[in-house]
Design a protein around this nucleic acid. Sequence first.
DNA 1: GTTGTAAATAAGAATTGTTCTCATTTAGGA
DNA 2: TCCTAAATGAGAACAATTCTTATTTACAAC
Lengths: 138, 138
Amino acid sequence: MEVSTKHFRKRDAILTYLRSTDIHPSAEMVFTQLKPEIPDLSMGTVYRNLNLFKQQGLAVSVATVKGVERFDGNTEPHVHFICQDCDAVIDLMDMNVPESLKAVAAQCCGGQVEGCQLSFTGICCNCLDNQIKGGKAV
Amino acid sequence: MEVSTKHFRKRDAILTYLRSTDIHPSAEMVFTQLKPEIPDLSMGTVYRNLNLFKQQGLAVSVATVKGVERFDGNTEPHVHFICQDCDAVIDLMDMNVPESLKAVAAQCCGGQVEGCQLSFTGICCNCLDNQIKGGKAV
DNA sequence: GTTGTAAATAAGAATTGTTCTCATTTAGGA
DNA sequence: TCCTAAATGAGAACAATTCTTATTTACAAC
């Protein structure tokens, strides 16, 4: 009872993982996650398929954190919080970007607006806790 | 009538250029711009000082476009438009991020919000024009 | 002036994230 | 079985960035 043919097993595994997680993984995080169950997976395949998903609109690049691109299988535009300490990329699902802004942006620049991205940076609650409990002076 | 001592001439030149332009240059763009007037400038110095400015809050990193970090000497939070065709990063000065959003974000994630970034992607007016005039099919 | 010290720098090596190349495997049709 | 096109692994190649080291510079103490 195979869900996917052998031919696309890796591609499917990458997309499935991307859709199942909310950690907004980098290519390497995807690789590390899937390697144990797919021992002959290679980084090339991960990058190749992530880029393919971007082209096809099955995934988006949500941020570049310390030089590393982060991906999201949730292509609905939503807001992110990026922790400067642990590099976590966290969904702020309760917030949404005012749809009206896109129209305003188009007017401002006179061009054709296709996407928008709102993200906050700071220290996430976990890292805040650790800083206090661990006595790590800020 | 030297504005800066010889010791800081390069650092100052980089910051001055960064503040004088609105093209949101990459490290290489800064280098290329200043090299003619400062022939012995090196890329190491550009990167070193850009990172220093970021730490000191004199500059910010506004985006990573096709793997290349882009800088801004204007540290006031404002909105950007990124052209997917020519990689231009353009200020949308008429728009501003609702200050209230930051508070909402802090509530959402329970962490400490320090900055926020709103950017739109699409095709800028120049590239739109070129596509039409040049007859380049999309 | 000379000496000493710390910061700034140039040059290029090293590192790292990403893309490319090419030989191999696989699927599916003729 | 043969053929073709797509997917892949492995590692080379590439590009952006950081690191290393020797040199230069400013400036203060002598």
